[in-house]
């Protein structure tokens, strides 16, 4: 359980956007969802963070696939020290 309870009636993360439901990806979606629910104690922060995430991942000229790879790789490096 998160140290700060998630705001139950909030949803800044796309709950229906799980796509192919490989087990670990589904769980990962749930975690991101939870992160934004915790952030929702400050809704404006959560809203603008989601907006920033969207802008960072979708705008510009670097291909979205590469940005996805980087996001995943960063998290791998942070959680698996090798």
């Amino acid at each position: 359980m998160s140290r700060i309870p998630p705001v139950e009636d909030s949803n800044f993360w796309p709950a229906g956007a799980e796509g192919e439901s490989h087990q670990h990806q589904t769980q990962a979606f749930a975690t991101m969802q939870e992160l934004f629910r915790v952030m929702a104690h400050r809704p404006e922060v959560a809203r603008q963070t989601m907006q920033l995430l969207q802008t960072v991942m979708r705008s510009g000229s670097v291909e979205p696939r590469l940005k996805e790879l980087l996001a995943i790789r960063v998290s791998q490096v942070n959680y698996c020290h090798y």
Partner: peptide
């Protein structure tokens, strides 16, 4: 956890 969230 949160890391592969965007992969799918």
């Amino acid at each position: 956890a949160a890391h592969t969230a965007l992969a799918g």
